Simulated scan of single mutants.
Amino acid sequence: MEVLNLTSSDPSIFILMGIPGLEAAHVWISIPFAAFYIIGLLGNFMVLFLVGTEQTLHKPMYILICMLALTDIGMSTSVMPKTLCIFWFNLTVISVGGCLTQTFFLHMLSVMNSAVLVTMAFDRYVAICNPLRYTTILTNTRIAKLGLVGLTRAVLSMLPLSLLLSRQPFCASRTILHTYCEHMAVAKISCGDTTVNRMYGLLMAFVGTGLDLTLIVLSYSLIIRAIFSMSSKKAHQKALNTCTTHICVMLTSYTSFLFSSLTHRFGQGIAPYVHIILANLYFIIPPMLNPIIYGVKTKELHDKLGKYTCRR
């Protein structure tokens, strides 16, 4: 304990405590966390491999699936390696620079993930509501440009989080009660005024996510209206199946994000370890489930995977 106190007073480092109150169970908690992380990596890399090697999958929809896979890999990898090192080897020390870098990347990738989901909703809207112009409206080049716009938005909106944290004074305690450098978890240990940090974080969490959710709900409202106006039962069923896949992915991502954010900010009566476990699950559950959902529900991707597996 004395060594920990000496280390935690070092101005160049922070101490990540893992899950306070469940330290004795860290090894057991790490088993599902590691399993989910590995399954997510394998699934998303498989999606990237299939789309990259199969020429017939070089279409806007599958390019968007690849973008989602890349953000999923980045999100889980920005958090889980350090978390598992804390659970397995008690490597709790992280440099200030490393902590601020982790804060930037995990939040930036989360915003980028949301931007990809919005673009996917727009892709389905054009495909179902304006199918004759789909190939002219959504080309691969245009999808790449939309991805670049989403990345630029994510970087510009999340960079101030790390900059604001870097200007905060950290006095006696440098111990973060978390498994990773989440923005508010770091801000809470500052001995300065964190009002701007809190307000900016809240603004980005709810205005940014609220805008994305509004666009998605609007897109799917128009899509559902178009589906039910179709006279052909076959076309009706095909469109509904396509939308179901995307809706499942979006519910998985946004439900875990909103639940984690709301309990972290407003669930004062909830035990701290519940906040931390939920926050970690946001970074591993959607990346694990998304490739499974697309692999099962997207026929073309499912067929390519089956053919490649059988060939090998």
Rank of each mutant, 00 (worst) to 15 (best):
F206M: 08
A271F: 01
S253N: 06
A271Q: 03
M250N: 03
I223E: 09
F257K: 02
V186T: 08
S231I: 15
F259H: 14
K188G: 08
A235H: 14
G267K: 11
M204P: 02
I216N: 04
C248G: 13
V196S: 15
I216P: 02
L215G: 00
A187E: 05
L258N: 14
N197Y: 01
A239E: 05
M204D: 00
V186A: 09
R225W: 09
A271W: 01
Y200Q: 08
F206D: 05
A239W: 03
I176F: 04
S253G: 04
K234F: 14
Y220N: 00
G208A: 06
S219I: 04
L222V: 00
H236Y: 06
C191D: 09
L202G: 05
D212W: 00
F259G: 12
G208E: 02
I227D: 05
S219M: 04
D193E: 15
L211M: 12
S221F: 10
I227G: 05
L262V: 14
I223P: 13
T245R: 10
K238C: 06
I176G: 02
S221H: 12
E182L: 03
L258S: 13
G269P: 01
L218V: 13
A205C: 08
K233N: 07
S221Q: 07
I176D: 02
F257T: 06
H178I: 10
S256W: 05
S260A: 14
F228M: 00
L211K: 04
Y180W: 09
M199E: 05
G201M: 05
Q237V: 13
I270K: 15
Y220D: 01
T252H: 00
S190E: 11
A226W: 02
S229A: 09
H178Q: 12
M230P: 11
H183M: 06
A235G: 13
L258Q: 12
I216Y: 01
G192K: 03
H178A: 15
M250E: 01
N197L: 07
S219C: 15
H246G: 04
R225N: 10
H246Y: 12
T263R: 04
L240I: 08
H183D: 00
V217T: 12
C181R: 07
S256G: 03
V217C: 10
S221E: 08
L203M: 02
G267Y: 06
F206V: 05
S219N: 12
Y273I: 10
R225T: 06
V274K: 04
L177C: 15
D212S: 07
V186K: 03
A187C: 12
S260G: 11
T214G: 07
N241K: 09
K234I: 15
T242N: 14
L203I: 01
K234S: 14
C243V: 09
G210Q: 01
D212L: 00
F228T: 00
S190Y: 13
T179W: 00
I176H: 04
